[in-house]
């Protein structure tokens, strides 16, 4: 026995477009609300880690913000200068927005991880350790995302991919070393 076909519910509406991987020029111009959330996320992670500690541990809560800001301020000029000196095609503004986007995304991850760190810090004395591990984790995520973003902006500008990827790896290595040094200063 067959059932009469039910009428379509389409009311002058097109079927949704198929989801395809983004191949257009990447747009990293995130809204201020996203940046605020990212900054809040890193601060929340630090505060959660310092919750169960003494005043000294709480004072180290903004360490993540200091480390992130330090890496961006210290390493980004080297990125722009080196990128242009080597004749790569992406514009400096694209490079800056690629870095900002990566750090913004990492900050959002930090916000998501803050409740977990809060619970772990509240039930143990692992707070400061978790704070440092959390910062290392989101720092690694940010730098991996930077590599992906730099690859995308160079590809969109029509540049050589192999050179761009190699340069991105070298630069993120430098940024990682700067970040570790700053983390040691602010968190210990």
């Amino acid at each position: 026995m067959s059932v009469a076909t039910l009428p379509s519910l389409i009311l002058s509406v097109e079927p949704p477009p198929a989801v395809t991987p983004a191949a257009a020029t990447p747009d990293f111009h995130t809204r201020p609300w996203v940046h605020a959330r990212a900054i809040g996320g890193v601060a929340a992670l630090g505060l959660a880690a310092g919750l169960a500690g003494q005043t000294e541990a709480l004072a180290r809560a903004p360490a993540g913000l200091a480390v992130g800001a330090g890496v961006v301020l210290l390493a980004t000029p080297a990125l722009i200068v080196g990128h242009q000196f080597l004749g790569m095609k992406a514009a400096p503004a694209s490079l800056v927005s690629a870095v900002a986007d990566a750090f913004a995304r990492a900050g959002i991850v930090a916000l998501g991880g803050a409740p977990a760190v809060l619970w772990l810090a509240a039930t143990s004395e692992m707070g400061p350790t978790l704070g440092v591990l959390g910062l290392l984790g989101i720092g690694a995520f940010a730098l991996c995302r930077v590599i992906a973003n730099l690859y995308d902006v160079e590809r969109a500008a029509g540049g050589a991919i192999e050179g761009a990827t190699g340069f991105a790896l070298v630069w993120t290595g430098l940024a990682a070393l700067i970040g570790l040094r700053l983390l040691y200063t602010f968190a210990f």
Binding site: L51, A52, L118, W119, A122, T123, S124, E125
Partner: peptide, 11 residues
Amino acid sequence: MTSSTLAISVA
């Protein structure tokens, strides 16, 4: 604040 107290507070 001990861990027990903090855990109870969070709960």
